[in-house]
């Protein structure tokens, strides 16, 4: 599903440069639920951004679903992002002047789907996250947990191969965090592949595999017994 080898990335800082990723090797199979952990500055977000094609690696190989991701044009990257990836952000990143339904439908718009089909599909996904009745509400009329669920519905809308979540529970209280995690676990149960960046141990424990990063290298890569979030809700 996802193979990364000898991945390097540095950022220029003034005259010198900061070597953030120092040769990452990682491979993720379909159906996995991987937590990427590390303190701030460990390079976990950079890794996620490279996987999400939001950023490009300096060196190394990255193959997603059999497609080598290298020297992409902006246009091609946009198409791949749309087709392969669904993003879930810490700060939700909903477009504030669009209602829940329109936000969810946006990736479908960029697929060139017609309006009617888009609305139907978006409504279906909103239903899946339990927000069918909130379809016509603007983001600022929703609670944090609801916003994140809209964002998840949006990530799911284009039926991506891989869901990328960057601190998905970072802006939520514990109870809501567990609800969101329960939902992500349910998606994983249904066969979705998930990659979750977090620095919270309890959240990582709810994944099936934990990859620990420190100073740009993988320190630890272990499979764990998944803690079911539903039990804690």
């Amino acid at each position: 599903m996802l193979q990364i080898s000898k991945l390097h990335k540095s950022y220029p800082i003034g005259d010198s440069s900061l070597h953030v990723l120092k040769g990452i090797d990682l491979s993720v199979e379909e159906g996995e639920m991987v937590a990427i952990m590390g303190s701030s500055g460990s390079g976990k977000s950079t890794l996620l951004n490279i996987i999400g094609m939001l950023d490009e690696a300096d060196e190394g190989e990255y193959v997603l679903d059999g497609v080598p991701i290298k020297n992409l044009t902006e246009k091609k990257a946009a198409i791949y992002r749309n087709k392969f990836l669904g993003f879930i952000f810490q700060s939700f990143n909903l477009i504030n002047y669009k209602n829940a339904l329109e936000n969810v439908a946006l990736p479908l718009y960029y697929q060139g789907m017609n309006r009617k089909e888009r609305s139907e599909k978006a409504l279906f996904h909103l239903g899946k996250v339990g927000l069918k009745d909130w379809a016509h509400h603007l983001p600022n009329e929703l609670s944090g947990g609801q916003k994140q669920r809209v964002a998840i519905a949006r990530a799911l809308a284009a039926n991506p191969k891989l869901l990328l979540a960057d601190e998905p529970t970072g802006a939520l209280d514990t109870k809501t965090s567990y609800e969101i995690m329960a939902f992500l676990q349910q998606l994983n149960d249904e066969g979705k592949t998930l990659l979750i960046v977090t620095h919270e141990e309890d959240i990582a424990a709810m994944c099936k595999r934990v990859v620990k990063l420190r100073d740009g290298v993988i320190m630890e890569d272990t499979r764990v017994e998944q803690v079911r979030a539903a039990a804690h809700v």
């Binding site: 902006e74 992002r81 749309n82 990143n93 477009i95 284009a158």
Partner: peptide
């Protein structure tokens, strides 16, 4: 800027 970032993450090509 932020809206543009969101749109791009969701797969908007530069032309759009």
């Amino acid at each position: 800027t932020k809206e543009i970032g969101i749109r791009k993450a969701l797969g908007a090509p530069p032309k759009a």
